[in-house]
């Protein structure tokens, strides 16, 4: 009947390990209203998205990650189509997609390194160099800009003590401008790792920065 040789139980690679608990995603207190202070749970839980590349020579995927990679391969008619999810998985694991990682991915999928390089550099979400633990992307596109996004960028730069596009000395923050994040009715929208912070105003920035710092202090 169906002439597609693969089965598909959902989002490529999602085994659920890294995501929110059932209550957090579905509980009645989840999202709902949009309070005017930044950090409400608008997004999914922060994934282990910004881990630094600790051992570049190690095998790319092992254990849980190998399983997720295998699962990704089952979802598409050919290996090439698995490239984007595989790169996303690489970034989740290593924090960014280095040239060496790209070569590994090429090997795994039977593609040429140059081809993988070409695809990786096409997309903005793959960090081609290391970024801070918190990648702060402030939308400065038209709707946010009309409502003062430039001041929000300024505030983030001041309170994280960085320059646009650079990473702070403690390795905590990289602040960049982003294109429209599709939350234009709730300006200014800021994406920090995988989460959206909406209705952010400059006066809330110190609170958000402190909150994020506290998170990573706890980690290390």
């Amino acid at each position: 009947m169906s002439d597609v040789p693969f089965k598909n139980p959902g989002w490529a690679g999602n085994t659920g390990e890294f995501d929110l608990t059932e209550e957090e995603v579905r509980g009645d207190d989840f999202v709902g209203t949009r309070p005017l202070h930044g950090g409400h749970a608008s997004g999914a839980g922060t994934m282990p998205f910004m881990l630094p590349e600790t051992n570049p020579d190690a095998k790319l995927f092992e254990g849980e990650y190998q399983e997720r990679f295998d699962k990704i391969l089952t979802r598409y008619p050919d290996k090439q189509a698995a490239l984007l999810p595989t790169l996303a998985l690489t970034q989740e694991l290593r924090g960014y997609v280095s040239a060496a990682s790209m070569d590994r991915v090429a090997e795994l999928l039977g593609l040429s390194p140059a081809y993988v390089r070409g695809v990786t550099t096409f997309y903005t979400m793959y960090n081609k160099r290391p970024v801070g633990r918190h990648l702060v992307q402030v939308c400065t596109n038209i709707s946010c800009s009309l409502c003062g996004a430039d001041d929000v960028v300024e505030a983030f730069l001041r309170y994280t003590d960085t320059e646009l596009g650079e990473t702070s000395e403690d390795g905590n923050f990289t602040v960049i401008e982003a294109e429209c994040l599709a939350a234009c009715g709730f300006p200014t929208c800021v994406q920090i790792n995988s989460r959206y912070y909406e209705n952010v105003t400059p006066s809330e920035v110190p609170k958000i920065v402190e909150h994020l710092k506290a998170q990573t202090d706890g980690d290390s």
């Binding site: 139980p9 959902g10 989002w11 999602n14 608008s42 997004g43 999914a44 994040l181 599709a182 989460r195």
Partner: peptide, 19 residues
Amino acid sequence: RGEFFEANQVLARAVEDAY
């Protein structure tokens, strides 16, 4: 869209339930 981690999650879960 890649930036929609939350929507991705919600959808993926809904797809699993529907399966």
